[in-house]
């Protein structure tokens, strides 16, 4: 464990909690892509099946349980409790165009052709693109609530910190997981455009709105 990984995990946790609180406090999931949240629930479920087979640390186990629990709670709030506020018309990204190729890729390119390992690989690839329905929704409506941009910023920061973590682990632990690194870099690149808007608009007190 190094400081970049720890702060990355905490940033990830902050993102998840910001989103839950936003929905809970405003009693609304307007502007939130339910599809992205379902993808994240699938990501955590398929990646953390090793909860049942291997124990790494108390920290590792508790974070996994919290991530999974929060992911399902978010999906529940969007599709059940605050369903009336869900903006389904604007959440029109075709997720099958992500899930099917990602599934195929996980079967073709993995560390080991075993059930758990393929599911882990699938979750890594899927996570790298799971935010696309949310970004698509923002580009479609042309705007995002400020709290939603804080959520996205924390999520992107988590990915950026993980890259620094991998550089650290490469030099100091000779640790190197090509699948995680490539997918992680792809995922971080997806946030670059958003980071630019966040710094130039949101941090200067303006609402994030895109030119028509």
């Amino acid at each position: 464990m190094n400081i970049f990984r720890l702060t990355g995990d905490l940033s990830h946790l902050a993102a998840i909690i910001i989103l839950l609180l936003k929905i809970w406090k405003t009693r609304s999931c307007a502007g939130i892509s339910g599809k992205s949240q379902i993808l994240f629930a699938i990501v955590f479920t398929t990646r953390y099946l090793d909860l049942l087979s291997s124990f790494i640390s108390l920290y590792n186990t508790s974070m996994k349980v919290i991530y999974i629990g929060c992911a399902y709670a978010t999906v529940y709030l969007i599709y059940m409790k605050f369903r009336a506020t869900y903006d389904g018309n604007h959440d029109s990204f075709r997720v099958e165009f992500l899930v099917v190729p990602v599934g195929g890729l996980a079967v073709l390119i993995n560390h080991d052709f075993s059930f758990l390992e393929i599911l882990w690989t699938f979750s890594i690839y899927l996570e790298s693109v799971a935010i696309l329905p949310q970004l698509f929704m923002i580009s479609k409506t042309g705007e995002a609530e400020t709290i939603t941009t804080h959520y996205l910023f924390c999520l992107g920061l988590y990915r950026a910190l993980y890259i620094v973590n991998w550089i650290w682990r490469y030099y100091f632990e000779a640790f190197f997981d090509l699948i995680a690194i490539v997918a992680g870099v792809v995922q971080t690149i997806l946030y670059c455009d958003f980071f630019y808007l966040y710094v130039t608009k949101v941090l200067k007190g303006k609402k994030l709105s895109l030119p028509a």
Binding site: N60, K64, W120, D177
Partner: peptide
């Protein structure tokens, strides 16, 4: 074993 990677990251 080669394939039995222990994924210790979240």
């Amino acid at each position: 074993a080669d394939g039995e990677a222990l994924h210790d990251e979240l």
